[in-house]
Design a protein around this nucleic acid. Structure first.
Length: 373
DNA sequence: TAGTCGTGGAA
DNA sequence: TTTCCAAGACT
């Protein structure tokens, strides 16, 4: 079936009152939904309970390109520290970065803070329309639709990676995913029910996360298998159709862990923009593509009795990194642009994971909250 | 529009 | 071990 025909057929079904897919999905969701810290259960929703827009927004930003399991602990920590958007707006940006450390994509944390400041300044209420939400920093098409649907019960077309997978399978969309997005959105719009659009969105995502998985989908358990085109072909894993990815280049460099006699470590802050923007690091060389790999202490930001302390590897989204680690004990004041972080402060610093690896390589246990040394 | 931006778990 | 990629946004 041609793409336009698929869309037209779905439109006719929706227009003629065939809400079968949404209906079956919601029934399944009532019985099999995941219980998540930011979620209002279907039973509570039926009693009139509505999600707190602040918590919905917080969870959606954290969940951008991030797994549910990784988000849970951070979400609980954030809403405990800052229960309201006003509380988050009143917090120092540094504290927010520290609390976000380890979750990745750190521009999200900056945008989170900027958005909280903006919303709090405008009275503390989040906008309740997709268009107005879309204007907030860090809120794109997906997140605006998700908040509108989940927090404000609006029939927005919520399209994330799960939904793309479910829809491309339902309709066996052969078009490359990057080009199929408009068609996918149009199809989702035809599926969104008048009632419970928020639960429908969450049901689609739960289906994608637990049944219609990227690998080995559990089609036998799927509530919409009778509606699914891909299952007939016997190879639903084929969808969505993606382009093969390029290999990641390797970059190398050296990192320098300077330790004071009392266990303090010399740190500095990265520029606000770019990779690991606004986060804290130990001094390092530039991370450049090189084949010799022979880093020496000559590259250190200042002279000291640098001793090799091993090597760590880390994989970012678009490159892999190998860092040679050097360790030295130094005395005196921190060089310009650097600061000493006391041993008990180090676990709470805004250190991205790669930097925790570096410090651990030189001083085992230094970044752990309960030092074993 | 295509590249940039983290991390960790699953297979 | 390697590969994939997760409730994407921004430029």
């Amino acid at each position: 079936m041609a793409p336009l025909d698929q869309t037209r057929k779905a439109s006719q079904q929706a227009a003629s009152g065939d809400t079968g897919i949404a209906s079956r999905l919601l029934t399944w969701y009532d019985a099999h939904h995941r219980d998540l810290p930011w979620r209002v259960t279907p039973v509570a929703f039926a009693r009139g309970v509505r999600a707190d827009p602040y918590r919905v927004w917080m969870s959606e930003v954290m969940l951008q390109q991030t797994t549910v399991e990784a988000v849970k602990a951070y979400f609980r920590d954030f809403v405990e520290k800052w229960p309201t958007v006003e509380a988050l707006a009143a917090a120092p940006a540094e504290d927010v970065m520290k609390a976000w450390a380890g979750l990745g994509y750190y521009s999200r944390a900056r945008n989170l803070k900027a958005c909280a400041d903006l919303v709090a300044h405008k009275g503390g209420r989040f906008p309740d329309t997709e268009a107005a939400l879309r204007e907030l920093p860090g809120v794109g098409a997906y997140t605006a639709a998700a908040i509108a649907a989940i927090a404000f019960d609006r029939p927005a077309a919520v399209v994330d990676g799960n939904v793309e997978r479910v829809v491309t399978r339902l309709y066996s969309i052969e078009t490359r995913l990057s080009e199929a997005k408009p068609q996918i959105r149009a199809l989702v719009e035809t599926l969104v029910p008048e009632t419970r659009p928020g639960d429908f969105a969450q049901a689609m995502m739960d289906l994608g996360a637990t049944i219609c998985t990227p690998k080995r989908p559990r089609c036998m358990l799927c509530p919409v298998r009778e509606d699914c085109s891909a299952i007939l072909s016997g190879d639903p894993e084929r969808f969505p159709v993606r382009l093969p990815k390029d290999d990641k280049p390797l970059r190398k460099g050296a990192a320098f862990v300077a330790e004071r006699d009392d266990g303090a470590i010399l740190l500095r802050k990265r520029p606000e923009k770019g990779l690991l923007g606004g986060m804290t690091e130990v001094p390092t060389t530039a991370w450049i593509a090189r084949v010799d790999g022979a880093t020496t202490a000559d590259a250190a930001p200042f002279p000291a009795d640098w001793r090799r302390a091993g090597q760590i590897g880390h994989v970012f989204t678009h490159f892999a990194l190998e860092l040679d680690i050097f360790h030295a004990r130094i005395k005196g004041d921190a060089p310009a642009g650097h600061f000493w972080s006391l041993a008990h402060q180090i676990p709470g610093e805004a250190l991205p994971t790669v930097m925790k690896k570096v410090i651990e390589a030189a001083i085992p246990g230094a970044t752990k909250k309960q030092p074993t040394r």
